[in-house]
């Protein structure tokens, strides 16, 4: 009987230790990100990154996304809804984390489109056709060209811009910043520097609403 108690007690103790450790880890991670954000935003927000919303907004959302990531596609309309729910109070910054092989090509298309002022339209076209060009998480970037015809891009200029070193650099810069900020999966959000406590739309919404309430 004593042996049974020992096993049950140990199992219980180990589980508690696991949960406590997980909570401690996530709160430390959050504190560290927040501290880094307060010290220097440049890892979060690089120059000329695509943005949505009011430039004077007091709440910044930094989103790391991969154009081939299905969850990023699912979150896109939800994030837009969040922005619409608090007009002029939120600014969204889009960063890239090319976690899928082949995503880098699509990111270059997006970044070159950004130079033509057509980032939003191109991103929407890329997401809308995601299943067609990235089936089962295997991006075939050459297929993307078939789906961005309706955006009204200057394709010759786009191809030229894609080869620019600054455009190429956004891919590696995004990956480097993702590594620094401990981004291991996409989409990852930072609301005024705070990461999500756990992944989910409700968590994002709560974080945004708290930030809006604190800033306005």
């Amino acid at each position: 009987m004593k042996q049974k108690h020992l096993v049950i007690f140990s199992a219980f103790f180990l589980l508690i230790a696991f949960v406590a450790g997980a909570m401690l880890y996530s709160s430390q991670k959050s504190d560290k990100a927040l501290e880094a954000y307060r010290r220097d935003k440049s890892t979060f927000i690089r120059e000329n990154v695509p943005t949505f919303g009011n430039p004077a907004a007091k709440v910044d959302i930094v989103e790391f996304l991969d154009p081939a990531c299905g969850t990023c596609k699912e979150f896109y309309p939800l994030v837009k809804k969040l922005l619409a729910a608090h007009p002029d109070k939120i600014r969204l910054y889009v960063r890239y984390a090319a976690f899928h092989p082949g995503s880098d090509q699509v990111i270059k298309i997006l970044e070159a489109a950004h130079r033509q002022g057509k980032f939003k339209e191109t991103l929407e076209a890329v997401f809308a056709a995601q299943e067609a060009w990235a089936p089962q998480h295997r991006p075939q970037p050459e297929l993307v060209w078939n789906y961005i015809g309706g955006v009204g891009l200057d394709i010759r200029k786009l191809r030229h811009d894609m080869a620019l070193p600054e455009v190429e650099k956004t891919v590696s810069q995004g990956l480097a910043d993702a590594k620094t900020l401990n981004v291991k999966a996409t989409p990852e959000f930072f609301v005024n520097g705070k990461p999500l406590p756990s992944f989910g739309y409700d968590q994002l919404k709560t974080l945004v609403e708290e930030a809006v309430a604190a800033a306005y």
Binding site: V7, S10, L14, G21, A22, S26, A185
Partner: peptide
């Protein structure tokens, strides 16, 4: 029995540790 219990403890700690690495810390 205590020897078996020790094996079980080591295995349990290893399992939870591996889950901590992958699920909490995000290592693939």
């Amino acid at each position: 029995w205590m020897l078996l219990f020790a094996c079980w403890m080591i295995a349990s700690v290893s399992v939870l540790g591996s889950l901590f690495f992958s699920e909490v810390m995000g290592f693939q």
